[in-house]
Amino acid sequence: MTILVVDDSRIMRNIIKNTLTGNSRYAHAQYLESPDGREAQRIISSQKIDLLLLDWNMPMLNGLELVKKLRADPLYAKLPIIMITSESAKYSVIEAVKAGVNDYLIKPVSEKLLMEKLERLGF
């Protein structure tokens, strides 16, 4: 399984990765990282990704725009995406779900919630 973690904060990417590898179920997944949406888009188009963990507020191309671009492409219409962001207002959540994310997690990342949401997506 290949998981792409996209966040402009390297520390946040680390935290997400460490949270996942701390669980035996996800310990052996292959992890890829990207600090912004544009690079993430390049990675996604160049290799197969099973799960995208995506921040919202990022330079270059923000998470929401990336989701819209991916969903517009039939190739990535089904790519599981969890948005992990500090944006907490409900209109933000709706906006993201409408754009096509499969689930939504508000930072700081709670391990329990992240695991729940992954399981819900069948990982």
């Binding site: 402009d8 904060s9 507020n57 500090s86 944006e87 907490s88 207002a89 209109y91």
Partner: peptide, 28 residues
């Protein structure tokens, strides 16, 4: 720098939950 930025980002982002009657945008 990364951590302090993320810290203030999360604080501002989470605070929006309590100010939902307004549309607020937060910068990087």
């Amino acid at each position: 720098v990364d951590a302090v930025g993320e810290l203030v980002n999360i604080i501002a982002g989470n605070a929006k939950k309590g100010l939902e009657e307004y549309r607020l945008d937060i910068s990087l």
